[in-house]
Design a protein around this nucleic acid. Structure first.
Length: 265
DNA sequence: ATGGTGGCACCGCCA
């Protein structure tokens, strides 16, 4: 290996489930792992209450948008981006679910896809429509020959090995043919699941464990719904991708845990 | 077990 560390670009995605309740995990985790970019979801904090200084004093730029109790996304980055966009580019709708940072060598799109509540609810219809809106955005604003990373809490377990019990869970809002179909359209456009590329066929690797399930982590009753997706030019520069179990071992952990990918850009 | 826990904001909503 004759690759210097400075050429390694590390991207992580972490649904923090309230940034205020997770600073004791996020800040030490950034200091220890030094990712180039950390994408966060469900920050659950108003912009004027965001702990900006906690990030800037450890050398990170921080960009965020949120209105309080629900949703909210943020990106922390070591290098200053060329551009930061909030929401769908045309009208900035859903700015508490999409934040885009453009860097010289790669564009990072951080998303928090609606969970969908129940299959027969308006929220599930909204989820499916959200996938279509995002696909439209990709096609209108980007080309898959560009270097683009899409990451976040996508609220889809793509395959049977991405849930603990595929038979019982079939039909769940995060595990059913309709969400697979709309997610597949993103993949057809040119996005690939980086974790799955490095761990083909590997089951039991989960990024989310429901708080309501007793001993979920110990019993491995989880879901892989947080993803790092990449277009071909950046995918071929990927060197590793994994789910980090460490933040789960801390006091008061999030119900999600970070997914990390490394690229030699 | 058709519940459960956790976070926010309020006395319920969302995951």
């Amino acid at each position: 290996m004759h690759q210097c560390n400075k050429d390694i670009f590390t991207v992580a995605t972490y649904n923090v489930n309230s940034i205020r309740s997770r600073l004791h995990i996020v800040i030490p985790w950034l200091l220890e792992n030094k990712p180039s970019v950390l994408c966060m979801q469900e920050t659950k904090v108003k912009d004027d209450a965001f702990a900006t200084e906690e990030f800037t004093r450890i050398g990170y730029n921080i960009f965020f948008r949120g209105s309080g109790g629900y949703n909210g996304v943020a990106i922390a980055s070591i290098d200053a981006p060329l551009e930061v966009l909030h929401g769908f580019p045309v009208n900035s709708e859903e700015s508490d679910r999409i934040i885009i940072t453009r860097f010289p060598l790669v564009t990072i799109i951080n998303i928090y896809v609606p969970q969908g509540r129940e299959k027969d609810s308006p929220q599930f219809a909204y989820k499916l429509a959200w996938f279509s809106r995002f696909e439209k955005m990709l096609k209108e604003h980007y080309i898959s020959s560009e270097s683009i990373i899409v990451c976040g809490d996508i609220n889809v377990a793509p395959d049977a090995i991405d849930v603990h019990n595929p038979v019982r869970l079939l039909g769940h809002v995060c595990f059913n043919p309709e969400v697979w179909d709309v997610f597949e359209k993103w993949k057809q456009w040119g996005l690939t699941d980086v974790f799955r590329m490095f761990h083909p066929g590997e089951s039991g690797e989960f990024s989310f464990y429901d708080y309501r399930t007793y001993d979920a982590v110990k019993k491995s009753i989880g879901w892989r719904i947080d993803h790092i997706l990449a277009t071909a030019p950046v995918l071929e520069k990927a060197i590793d991708c994994w789910i980090d179990v460490q933040p789960r071992l801390k006091e008061k952990p999030s119900d999600h845990t970070p997914v990390i990918a490394k690229f030699v850009l």
